[in-house]
Design a protein around this nucleic acid. Sequence first.
DNA 1: CCAACCTTGACACGATCGTGTTAAGCTTTG
DNA 2: CAAAGCTTAACACGATCGTGTCAAGGTTGG
Lengths: 127, 127
Amino acid sequence: MEGLTINEAAETTGWSPRMLRYIESAGLIEPARTPKGYRIYGPGELQRVRTLRELLARFDCALSDVAFAKRHASDPELRAALEHWFEERPERPEGVASGDWLSWEQQKHERLLAMDTPPRLTEPTPA
Amino acid sequence: MEGLTINEAAETTGWSPRMLRYIESAGLIEPARTPKGYRIYGPGELQRVRTLRELLARFDCALSDVAFAKRHASDPELRAALEHWFEERPERPEGVASGDWLSWEQQKHERLLAMDTPPRLTEPTPA
DNA sequence: CCAACCTTGACACGATCGTGTTAAGCTTTG
DNA sequence: CAAAGCTTAACACGATCGTGTCAAGGTTGG
């Protein structure tokens, strides 16, 4: 015996077997498998599952939030895009007159984020 | 006139007025207000709202995900806890015998994460 | 071989998300 | 002042999340 089966793991972690499978399907833990496909929870998985429970409770967040945080942690593109979006000052820098604010700070992202969006065909808004 | 009203902003951004308010309620943008409480969308807000749309589409994620990412970005405790949880090796380090794996790597988090959880009163599991 | 356990898949159901719509009440403006 | 626009609050409704339960079938072990 190399670890706990799913029902045993459920017992010691407080999650239901159903939930352990669900958590796995969310990509948060991948227990090893026996040759025939039975899940085997080692001490590492057990610990992760327990702390996951505390994480959710302590910060009152959803399982899907943690799943997204994982994406965020492992996808540099996503991280960069989000970071960039957040650090956008919502204030206007004083220097803009009431007239030309339509074009202020416009192109900065139109290249950064929309690089792969199709060139808008509708609404060319010609002079 | 210092900026666009909510309906005008909706027109130029593609969101519905309803959605602009919802996005605001999610804490993602806070347009300025007139003395009487009317929302005023400046160029910064408009840009943020547009790029938000592209963000969601490009990475196929939910609004609540971005809201959580904001929490993640501004709450160091949350960030630390998540980071720590992720970098947990799921593998066992070879050296553990089949017998004592019950206590291996156990206390590391029990102090780190559970510092403020009440001492379990139920199930003392006495010998 | 039979009971106990595992696996995947599905149905169910309350809670929350994302969104539209509508009502009741101010504000702005022609 | 009346029409048009804004604000908050609420109801509604499909979609997804989190969770339990149950069915049909493979595996394990006395």
